[in-house]
Simulated assay, not measured.
Amino acid sequence: MTALILIDVQRGFDDPYWGKRDNPDAEANIARLLASWTGPLVFVRHDSTTPDSPLRPGQDGNRFKPELDRAEPDLVFGKNVNSAFHGEVDLHEWLKARHITDIVLAGVQTNMCVETTARVGGNLGYRVKVVLDATFTFGLEDLTAEQLAQATATNLRGGGFAEIVSTDDVI
């Protein structure tokens, strides 16, 4: 069985605080995934502990983006680290209890929480697919968002952590 895990698809990532992002089609692709998905669905929210973060609980930026409004996830929980496997819920136990062996990941940020979740999931033995065109990130230090997304794809694929797929591949 396969679960779709949407990571940190939150309004706070629209804040100029983050800088220039890549992939303006990410939200539309996330909406397409949701519209076609029939299996278990998980929403993960980043609950930042950084005082000036737009993702802090209690702020509008902590809420999910409107593309997720109509969905009925099987599990919703918060985390304050990069991996969805290290949040308020033991995601690994939740998946095992439902005999889920494959996970499809999408969300924000490609090279942070999505990549970390993919790596941990791969280490735990899940067959992981990352829907690269349903993720986005921001430039960091001297690399552009596009370069970071490509580096993530290379790292995950080359390291055997995940298969890199498109929204069309999943649908």
Rank of each mutant, 00 (worst) to 15 (best):
V81K: 11
F77H: 13
L148N: 06
D15C: 04
V131I: 10
G107P: 09
E146W: 03
V81Q: 05
G12E: 04
G159F: 06
F43M: 09
G121I: 11
L124C: 07
I103V: 14
G19A: 06
A145E: 10
F43R: 07
G158Y: 00
G58R: 02
T2S: 14
G12T: 01
V81H: 02
N155E: 01
G12L: 03
G122W: 07
A31L: 10
N82E: 03
N123D: 15
A162G: 09
L156W: 01
H86W: 02
E163N: 13
D69P: 00
G125P: 03
N62S: 11
K65R: 15
K129N: 12
D142W: 06
K96S: 13
V131W: 12
N23G: 11
L132R: 13
T144S: 15
I5G: 05
R11W: 00
E67Y: 00
A3M: 02
V131H: 12
V76Q: 15
R45C: 07
G61M: 03
F77I: 14
W94M: 13
L6G: 13
G125M: 01
V131K: 11
D74Q: 08
A35H: 11
P66D: 15
T154P: 00
N62F: 09
T137S: 10
D168N: 12
A153N: 11
A153G: 12
S166L: 12
I171N: 13
H86Q: 04
L6Q: 07
H92S: 05
N82R: 08
T152L: 10
G125W: 03
L34D: 09
F43N: 07
D69E: 15
T154E: 14
L33G: 06
D14V: 00
T116R: 08
N155H: 10
D102W: 00
L75F: 14
R21L: 02
N111L: 04
S53R: 00
G160S: 03
G160V: 01
P66C: 05
L143Y: 13
D52V: 05
S166W: 14
V76F: 08
E163Q: 15
F85N: 10
L55N: 08
A153T: 09
E146V: 13
D133Y: 12
V44D: 04
T137W: 01
A145S: 12
V130N: 09
F161H: 14
A106S: 12
F64T: 07
G139Y: 10
F64P: 06
A162W: 09
V44R: 07
L105G: 07
Q59L: 15
E67W: 01
A153M: 11
E163K: 15
T152G: 05
V42C: 03
P54Q: 03
N29D: 06
V89T: 15
L124I: 02
P24M: 00
G159Y: 06
L34K: 10
D25W: 08
T50Q: 13
T167P: 07
L156K: 04
T117W: 01
Q109S: 00
